[in-house]
Design a protein around this nucleic acid. Structure first.
Length: 271
DNA sequence: CCATGAACCTGGTCGC
DNA sequence: TGCGACCAGGTTCATG
């Protein structure tokens, strides 16, 4: 479920209730959810510490405790939400009790989601690439960073070490909008198309945040609430349907190990 | 450096 | 209705 806009939406939905609070306990139902620390570490280092901020970095939800952070990655099916008391929901990996009586619940059907504890955010920043909604992500930056690599553009855009936050849905949408075939080598893309791509990434992500993200099928991430950006998708999941620009049938193909949707006419390979 | 496939998990859908 | 195959918004690791 979670790419940048969905993670941002989760952050916006829990931030106000979390900042200024503190945890008094954690219940761990799926031990592997704690990636690099133990329940005792949580009790020793994070319990009764003031939550000073909640923000997003790439696809991580970051809870700050002064310098220390608890970073949460939803992976494919993670959901993070508040519950009033003990919930009997299936698939709860962990839940944390706040001193105001609320529970912050991490539900995760496929169990891929993870919690990470670091003494600062440096570790994340060191391995993650540029924020696509940040001011330093510009057409010039993109031109420079695509020119020096020879990978298929789809694989490159999915690589979190380069640009942090894009995932399978938004990459397909942005490549379609900018007329780039997903298998084009990054150093072969025309500058004009790269400029379109940059604009497309910024516009698409921002529009999706405004719509509170994308909900695929009926999988919601906010206790029943669904993101409305699904209505604005133009190629993702549209295989077999006509391209809204040229009416050519949208195709689906495996690229970079992922199901990839594109218009064979609007998106010609440039090599 | 790059591409591919498997692994980590569960559940939904599709064809027979 | 049942069963197997295949798919899923992510990331990491091994291999060629």
């Amino acid at each position: 479920m979670p790419e940048l806009p969905e993670v941002e939406t989760v952050v916006l939905s829990i931030r106000d209730q979390l900042v200024g609070q503190n945890f008094i306990n954690i219940n761990v139902h799926w031990p592997k959810v704690l990636f690099n620390f133990s329940k005792q570490d949580f009790l020793d280092n994070l319990v009764r510490r003031n939550i000073t901020n909640v923000h997003r970095r790439a696809k991580f939800i970051v809870l700050s405790f002064d310098k220390d952070i608890l970073a949460i990655h939803l992976r494919m099916t993670g959901k993070l939400y508040f519950a009033d008391s003990k919930t009997n929901e299936k698939h709860i990996s962990a839940s944390m009790e706040l001193d105001n009586g609320q529970q912050l619940v991490f539900e995760d059907i496929r169990k891929f989601g993870r919690f990470y504890y670091y003494t600062s955010q440096d570790f994340l920043d060191k391995k993650l690439g540029i924020e696509p909604l940040g001011d330093s992500f510009t057409a010039e930056w993109l031109i420079e960073n695509l020119r020096c690599k020879k990978r298929m553009i789809k694989a490159l855009l999915l690589d979190q070490r380069i640009i942090a936050g894009l995932g399978n849905i938004y990459v397909d949408e942005c490549l379609w909008q900018s007329g780039i075939h997903p298998e084009t080598r990054s150093n072969k893309i025309q500058k004009k198309n790269i400029r379109f791509l940059c604009e497309s990434i910024k516009n698409t992500l921002q529009s999706s945040i405004t719509a509170r993200g994308t909900t695929v099928v009926n999988f919601s991430f906010l206790n029943g609430k669904t993101g409305k950006f699904s209505n604005q998708l133009q190629v993702f999941g549209k295989d077999g349907q006509p391209c809204v620009i040229c009416t050519t049938e949208i195709k689906k193909k495996r690229v970079a190990g992922r199901g990839t949707h594109f218009c064979p006419r609007c998106q010609k390979r440039q090599y």
